[in-house]
Amino acid sequence: MALQGTGAPPRTAAPVAALSAISPKGTERTGHSSRVIAYVVVGLLCVFSLFPLYWMLENSLRSESDASNSVTFWPEEFHWSNYSTMWNSLTYPFHIFLINSFVMAGLVTIGTVASCALVAYGFARFRFAGREFLFAVIIGTTMIPYAVMMIPQYAMFINVFHWGGGGSAFGYHNLYQFLPQIVPAFFGSPFFIFLLRQFIRGIPYDLDEAAKVDGAGPLRIFWTIILPELRPALAAVTVLTFIGKWNDFLGPLIYLTDAHNWTIELALNSFIGRYSTIFNLQMAASLMSMLPIMIVYFIASRQIIEGVTLSGVKG
């Protein structure tokens, strides 16, 4: 669905729209016995959500033959050394991959947030010929599947821009390979432009007017009035873009062909190729790819929910 960025974070569309409508309190009233049942079922739901993660943690600490031969719910012995083994089991140590993921997702996030906010501001606050048409085009582009764009974008980045490949032309660490991932993000992402435009239109125009009377130019208005009001929405865009790009697999798979440039997702993929039956290390590596996302989520989940709800935009 989403476009422009390679790989694309299409799934991020839904939660922003949905979270926006959730009020913190429930509405349905229930009797006593059904409340007990509700707690039990909610408990089961949480177990269903968390058990696979526990399974990953538990098996990451077992010995290789234990993990591949039997099922237990508590490790026979704690093999903490699995983590150091895993850490050094690929071409480069895992922190290289984590840094790559972090830098790539971070730059994409900065680019997306900055460009989407500015473009949305342009669409929401300025009148110009063809505005509605261009906006319709934005919405239209969200409908083009990435599958169609994958190869032509590749052709363009590789053949026209020469961003990619490897070898001696660019030296050892070919950082050009990151460009197809990062540069498009600086030109906005259709869904988030749409979302932020709706937000900005919700900000009272009187504030702009008052600032204008004080002699503020458009950029100053953007900086002093729009941005502070937009902060909850930007927080949501930031977190969702970061998570979406961190989790991206296809984009990096196509472009990041130097092992030194691999993201954590690519490292995991090569882990399967190399250690297809060594489950304890696979689980340890999986945990490494999930942990940063879990941390981001648990820090920011409240902010997303509240922030997006407050601004009262519905998809």
Partner: peptide
């Protein structure tokens, strides 16, 4: 829903 797909599939 936000867990990376690669690791999820591995689990």
């Amino acid at each position: 829903a936000i867990m990376p797909a690669v690791a999820t599939v591995l689990i």
